[in-house]
């Protein structure tokens, strides 16, 4: 199985390659990619240089152009595809039909991966993207169990890629507007979820309140670890109960199901976190390199939970939907 690792900056790309990535994914510094955070991402020149560095080390670069093109500005997304191709990218990761269609028509030699933002989880949906755009790999939504992935892989004739570590979307990706409801910006519209310019942390007598656009998303006692106020990871009150209604503030660690994913026919394993620093990426990639090598050699990956526990938000981890009890 290939290990696909995130890079928000050229320095992180190099760090990921050195730490053992088989491929690095990254995006341009604009709204064409779903990690459009301040100070992050690549200029065209930086991408070209990054591709050279990766290829010199025998590794690949995948370019995420995975937001939805805005009306009247589709050219910006087309241009991103053209530049990725010119830079020598090994594949483009896309979700929008406008982007997929342009890539398939204008760059027939360029490999296309279907972004998780397209949330293709049925054989019919996968078949649609393969037939219409010759998609070569589908990044699987994070709502499928290992058994469901195995069943899907038996019915489709295309590579699949599964997330194994990092932030966990609890909603169907690419179809969640919670962020724009509160802030006006969302993954699909602007490439950001719960954008930082709407985030405030305020200390009061009860501790620290994390707010997004004025909505209190969570509250922490002074001694407690905090989290980023991502809407779906907040505490809310419903039916008289206050709880982490949508998802606890945990991050995904599928280290324990790597062997299961391999048996399910998954081609590539993806680490989330283009917004994270190179210290984080280096540590996670190194650990997963060891785990994947162990799995490929027939061993098990039980150790990995302990190795990675310190790096996640709030320190807690889950195997998410890969175990069906998550629902």
């Amino acid at each position: 199985m290939e290990l696909i690792c995130p890079a928000g900056t050229p320095a992180t790309l190099r760090a990921a390659v050195v730490a053992g990535a088989d491929a690095v994914y990254c995006g341009f510094r604009n709204e064409t990619n779903a990690r459009n955070f301040p100070g992050l991402n690549f200029s065209t020149a930086e991408l070209a240089e990054g591709v050279r560095f990766a290829h010199d080390h025998g590794k690949k670069v995948l370019v995420a152009i995975n937001t939805f093109a805005q009306p009247g500005r589709v050219d910006l997304w087309h241009k991103a595809v053209d530049e990725a191709a010119q830079c020598g990218a090994d594949a483009v990761i896309a979700a929008d039909l406008a982007v997929l269609d342009h890539a398939a028509n204008c760059h027939p030699g360029l490999r296309l991966h279907l972004s998780v933002q397209a949330a293709a989880s049925t054989p019919e949906a996968v078949k649609f993207y393969v037939d219409a755009f010759r998609v070569r790999r589908v990044v699987l939504p994070r709502v499928l169990s290992v058994q469901e992935i195995a069943a899907l892989n038996r019915m489709i004739d295309v590579e699949t890629e599964a997330f194994v570590f990092g932030g966990l979307c609890v909603m169907v990706e690419g179809r969640c507007y919670l962020s724009s409801y509160a802030t006006g910006k969302s993954p699909n519209l602007s490439g950001v979820c719960s954008p930082p310019e709407h985030v405030t942390y305020e200390d009061d007598a009860e501790g620290t309140a994390a707010r997004l656009a004025g909505f209190t998303i969570d509250r922490y006692a002074q001694s407690q670890p905090t989290g980023y106020p991502t809407l779906c990871k907040g505490r809310f009150t419903a039916g008289g109960k206050t709880s982490y209604l949508f998802e606890d503030p945990v991050s995904l660690n599928a280290g324990g199901v790597l062997a299961g994913l391999k048996a399910a026919g998954v081609t590539a394993l993806k680490i989330e976190g283009r917004q994270r620093g190179k210290a984080y990426v280096t540590e996670v990639v190194r650990a997963f390199r060891r785990a994947v090598d162990a799995v490929e050699a027939g061993g098990d990956a039980a150790e990995i939970d302990r190795i990675l526990a310190g790096m996640s938000e709030g320190g807690r981890q889950t195997e998410g939907a890969y175990k069906k009890t998550w629902r």
Binding site: T9, A11, P38, E197, Y201, Y228, G277, G315
Partner: peptide
């Protein structure tokens, strides 16, 4: 997240600085 470092004010500017320094 472990509260060893804390931030306030314009979160997006902190993020931009963090990313610039990291690169």
């Amino acid at each position: 997240f472990r509260r060893i470092v804390s931030i306030g004010g314009r979160t997006e500017a902190v993020l931009a600085l963090r990313n610039a320094i990291d690169d």
